[in-house]
Design a protein around this nucleic acid. Structure first.
Length: 373
DNA sequence: TCCTCCCGCCAGCAC
DNA sequence: GTGCTGGCGGGAGGA
């Protein structure tokens, strides 16, 4: 049983024909969050792509996008056709370390400080060393065997090279446009190839954002959209009660929407919204937390409330704030109890509940609160 | 209008 | 031949 994900599917699904299409409900970042929530638990060793697609209610094609990115940062490894081995978040530090070594080896010990040049909108001034991280979209790519050319353009490799931009330079932030140009190298690249690369980088950025590896921001001078590396020091994803309400923020957030059901979030009247609201309730936002209060997991990775079961929990904000959130949670939970007919989603939601209760008990020093059953 | 990025076509590849 | 994989770009939603 699959969730209606694509609008075409929603239109044909008798149970969701009244739910308007909303692309935000179907982002790769959200899908990634759901994917991780589904499989990041004890006892998961392998993941079948068909199983994932079925449980998440998406097409296999979208699962490929997710697993390619996750594989590139070590969370998954391909085991066989249609099946991946779950490595988990604990594998990330090692993977990133490997990427950093690889990247530094590629570009050599020379200058790695080109952030200022990058931040300018001057393509000509791009740091030439970074071209060694570029892929094979150059004008001489015709001389490369098709298989290699295809592999070199893969989403996984592009992800790794994108991550290397942060790991191997002192760039604080980078726009996807600049990243695309860097990764394309110094060959003759048309606006079309850049555009295509940027599209892929958006895909990657959404997935990495959903895991808090990076965050979307704006360049302080140009105000152009850019992404900032958070990496292993990324602030943990925490649930904010006020974010449960219809978001006023223009900033896109990912993480804990429970389904990818096609629902209209913003452009519907209140009655309509309430009718579909349960699918949209749980959202995330980043909280400003004292650096000292954060507990690290493994080699420093910061986990949120949906962290691996064996990971240390996050220490949250002030006691008052925590209590307020809990009250709001309980209130909202009773008002907007989701009704899931999909067993996989029930399981998934149960996971969220357990994660939240565990996290809350930890940070608030209270017993687990009763949410929905 | 421009940015963002979902969606599915279709080519390459493995079996 | 069939199914898996995933690059690619059209085009629509959103700001």
């Amino acid at each position: 049983m699959a969730l209606p994900y694509a609008h075409t599917a929603a239109a044909t699904d008798s149970g969701s024909k009244d739910i308007p299409y909303c692309r935000k409900q179907k982002s790769l970042g959200l899908l990634c969050s759901n994917f991780l929530s589904l499989y990041d638990r004890d006892g998961v060793e392998t993941i079948g792509l068909d199983d994932a697609a079925s449980k998440l209610g998406v097409e296999r094609r979208r699962i490929y996008d997710i697993v390619n990115v996750l594989e590139s940062v070590g969370i998954l490894t391909r085991k066989e056709k249609n099946r991946y081995t779950w490595k988990g978040f604990a594998a990330i530090p090692k993977a990133l370390e490997g990427l950093k070594k690889e990247g530094l080896r590629d570009i050599g010990p020379a200058d790695t400080s080109c952030s200022e040049k990058i931040s300018d909108d001057e393509e000509d001034e791009m740091c030439s060393d970074m071209n060694s991280l570029s892929q094979n979209d150059r004008s001489d790519s015709s001389s490369v065997p098709k298989r290699d050319s295809r592999k070199e353009k893969s989403l996984g490799l592009l992800t790794q090279n994108f991550v290397k931009l942060f790991l191997c330079t002192d760039m604080d932030m980078i726009s996807l446009d600049d990243a695309a140009k860097l990764l394309l190298g110094d060959g003759k690249h048309t606006s079309m190839t850049t555009r295509t690369k940027v599209r892929r980088l958006y895909d990657i950025a959404n997935v990495l954002s959903s895991m808090n590896f990076i965050e979307k921001t704006h360049h302080p001078e140009t105000r152009k959209p850019a992404f900032r590396w958070l990496g292993l020091n990324g602030k943990p994803v925490t649930i904010s009660a006020d974010s449960l309400l219809l978001s006023d923020s223009k900033k896109r957030v990912f993480g804990t929407d429970l389904t990818n059901a096609a629902t209209k979030r913003l452009k519907v009247d209140d009655d309509t919204f309430l009718a579909v609201k349960p699918h949209n309730q749980v959202r995330v936002k980043q909280e400003n937390e004292n650096e000292d209060d954060r507990i690290t997991a493994g080699k420093g990775y910061q986990f949120g409330p949906f962290a691996p079961a064996n990971a240390p929990k996050v220490v949250g904000d002030s006691h008052d704030e925590k209590e307020k959130q809990a009250v709001d949670w309980e209130s909202l939970a009773s008002s907007y109890k989701p009704q899931y007919h999909n067993q996989a989603l029930k399981d998934l939601f149960s996971h969220f509940q357990e994660a939240w209760k565990s996290w809350y008990a930890e940070v608030a020093g209270k017993g687990p609160i009763q949410l929905m059953s």
